[in-house]
Design a binder for these strands. Structure first.
Lengths: 342, 342
DNA sequence: TTGAAAGCGTTACCAC
DNA sequence: GTGGTAACGCTTTCAA
C-alpha cells in the first residue's frame, strides 16, 4: 500500500496542508521545507490515491464536451457509444459528457457548435472535425484559454491538442493491400471508390494501399477511381457504369462510406463471386454485406474504443492535476471476415 | 449527480447507519422502516459511489490470487502482463495480485499451487488450469468456502466459477477456415499440426476449422495430422518427414504452439512461398515469422485483455458487495498479417 | 508561511 | 433496532 499525504506530513514534521502545497507546486512554502517534503515523498514512493482525489473533487465535477460531425453517417454512432460508455463508467466520479453533433463538414458550423459546448460550461473537449487553418487557430485559442482538447478519429496537425485518439490510416491502407496480395491474384483489375479526394484520411489509406501493393510486387491495373461522397444513393450509378464498361474488374477497394451503394451494383450484375470487395469500418449494412459474402474483408478501427478512450484520457489528465500529458492512442487496424464479425 | 446515502437518510428521516443496513440487506432494521428506505432509495435512483466505497474499503484490501500453468510457454506471459496491468491500475484501490506459475499440466501440481494461493491469504482466484474432475471438485470446494473463482483462457465446465474470460476456440478454428476459403485454392493439400489431442481448446479449433471448410465447400485433402506437444524442437522432425513425403502440401494449419519448429522445416526446404501457413497467437517468434512472410496469418485471442479483464471483473464483483455476478467475457478473434502486426 | 479543520460518500463500530 | 461518530486520502478554506 503506497504512502499517504498524512504519512509524509508525519515523517516531515509538518501539516498535511503544507505537504499538499508542496506536491502541487503551490507557492507559500519555505524552499528548504519544500525540498525536505519532496525528498520524503520521493523516498516513500508517494502516489496520490485516486479514490481520495475523486471524492474531494466532487465539489467541482468535470464536464467534457464532445463534438462529432457527420450526422447520418452510421460510423460515428459507434464513437458516441464509446463516449456514453465512458460517461456511465465515470458518472460517480463526477464526469458529465455533453455531446454536440452536426450535419456535414462546413467549417463555420463546426466552429459554432464547438463554441456552443464551451458556452455551455464544458471544461474540456474531445473533437473530430476538419483540418483547416481556421479550425486550427480557433481551437488553439480555446486551448490557450485553458480548455484542453483531444482530437478523436481525425487529427489536427500543428495544434496544441493534448493528444490524438484514432486510427493509423496509412496502415489501414497497407493492410488492405496485404490481404489482397495473399489472394494469389494472377492479375488485379482494380476499381477504387474513395469517399472524398479532399479528406486526408481517405487519401492516406489510398497511399498506404498502393505503396504496399508496389512493395509486394502485386501485378495490378487501376481501372478507375471515383468518389462516393459517403453516399450510397449517389455512388450506385458511377459504380454501375464502371462495372459495365470493364467486365474484367475483379477487385473493388472501397476506401470510406458508400459501400452499400457499391455492393448493390455488384450484386445486381451478379458479379459478387468474381469480385473481391474490401471495405472499411463496421456499420450494420457493411456487416450484413460481409455476412452475405459480398464484402470479403472489412477493416475496422475500433470506433467505440476511440470514444471511450478519449474521455478516459481526459479524465486521467484532470486527475493528474493537468500535469501528465497523455500519449497518442492509435487504435487497432482490425481485419474482419464473415467468421469473426458479430 | 446521483443521490447519496446521506440524502436518503435525510429524506427518510433516519440515520446513515440505518440506510446502510437496509441497502446491504443486513438484519436489525424494522421491516416497515426498511421498506420505506428502500422506496426512497429507489425513487432517488440511488447508485453507490465507487470512490467512497473504495476509500472505506482500504481497511480490508483485496488480494487476488492468479494461477497459470505452462511456464516456458511464451503465450502466458501476455496474460501475466494483463494481470500486472490491472494490478497497477487498481493498486491505489487496495488491490494486490499474487501470481503462481507452474510447469506443465499435472493435476496434483496445479491443486497444490492453487491451495498455496489460498493459504497465502488470497480472497479470490483467477485461474487457468486443466478441465478434470479432480480440479473441478477441488475448486467447487473452495468456491463453497467463500472464495470466488474466475476461469481465464480455459473454462472449467460444470463448476460454480463466477464467469469465464477467454476466447471462443470454435470460432478461432472457423476464422482460419474462412481465411483459407478466400485464398482461391484450386485444391488444398492440408497438414494439421495440433498441440495436443487431449486439450479441449485445440480440438475445438480443429472442429470449427473443418466444419467451416465443409460449409464453404472448400475442396481439400487432409494429408496428415500430428501433435507438436507445444514444443518447437520436438515438432521439427515429424514436420520435415511429412513435408518430404508429401511435396504437394500447400497449407499448414498450426493449431497451437510449436510454430517455430514447423516453420524451420518449411524454410529449410525452401517451400515458404508455396505453402500457406496459418497459426495462432502472437508470441514474439510467431510475430517474426509473420514479418518474414513465412506465416501468412496468425489468429490472436487478446491474452493481455484476458488477464486485465479477469482482475477487473473480480474487483467489480467485490465492489458490488458480491451481489452482481459478472458475465462471461469472450475476447476477440483477431486476424493478424504482416501489415497489422506490431 | 504554516496549521487546523471541514467535507467528499462509504463503511464499521460503539453506544443507546 | 437505531443513531452517532470516526475513519479512509485528498482538497480547500480559514485562521494564525
Amino acid at each position: 500500500m503506497p504512502a499517504t499525504i498524512k504519512q509524509i506530513a508525519a515523517a516531515a514534521g509538518v501539516s498535511r496542508g503544507t505537504v499538499d502545497r508542496v506536491l502541487h507546486n503551490r507557492s507559500g512554502v519555505k524552499p528548504e521545507i519544500a525540498a525536505h517534503v519532496r525528498q520524503i515523498a520521493n523516498d516513500l514512493g508517494y502516489e496520490p490515491n485516486r479514490a481520495g482525489k475523486i471524492l474531494a473533487a466532487r465539489k467541482q465535477p468535470l464536464k467534457i464536451g464532445c463534438f462529432l460531425p457527420g450526422i447520418g453517417n452510421a460510423f460515428y454512432e459507434d464513437v458516441v457509444t464509446g463516449f456514453r460508455q465512458a460517461e456511465a463508467e465515470y458518472a460517480d466520479f463526477g464526469v458529465t459528457v455533453e455531446l454536440s453533433r452536426v450535419e456535414g463538414y462546413d467549417v463555420q458550423t463546426h466552429i459554432r457548435a464547438i463554441q456552443g459546448l464551451v458556452d455551455a460550461g464544458c471544461q474540456a473537449l474531445c473533437v473530430s472535425t476538419v483540418d483547416t487553418h481556421e479550425i486550427r487557430s480557433f481551437l488553439n485559442r480555446l486551448i490557450e484559454s485553458g480548455i484542453p482538447v483531444i482530437t478523436v478519429n481525425t487529427d489536427l496537425t500543428g495544434t496544441k491538442r493534448l493528444c490524438y485518439v484514432g486510427s493509423d490510416y496509412l496502415r489501414g491502407g497497407s493492410v488492405a493491400a496485404g490481404l489482397l496480395s495473399m489472394m494469389n491474384p494472377s492479375r488485379l483489375n482494380l476499381l477504387i471508390v474513395t469517399g472524398s479526394l479532399k479528406i486526408k484520411g481517405h487519401n492516406e489509406r489510398i497511399r498506404g494501399f498502393s505503396r504496399t501493393l508496389r512493395e509486394k510486387k502485386v501485378p495490378y491495373r487501376l481501372v478507375d477511381v471515383f468518389e462516393s461522397l459517403d453516399n450510397d444513393e449517389y455512388v450506385y450509378q458511377p459504380t454501375m457504369q464502371a462495372l459495365c464498361a470493364h467486365p474484367d474488374i475483379n477487385c473493388i477497394y472501397i476506401v470510406a462510406a458508400g459501400g452499400a451503394g457499391v455492393c448493390r451494383a455488384v450484386t445486381e450484375l451478379g458479379r459478387q463471386d468474381r469480385i473481391y470487395v474490401l471495405s472499411y469500418d463496421e456499420i450494420e449494412t457493411t456487416r450484413q454485406l460481409v455476412r452475405d459474402g459480398v464484402i470479403n474483408f472489412t477493416i475496422g478501427q475500433e470506433p467505440v474504443e476511440q470514444g471511450r478512450c478519449s474521455i478516459q484520457l481526459m479524465f486521467d489528465y484532470y486527475m493528474s492535476g493537468k500535469q501528465v500529458v497523455p500519449q497518442d492512442h492509435i487504435t487497432g487496424t482490425v481485419i474482419k471476415i464473415k467468421e469473426n464479425i458479430d
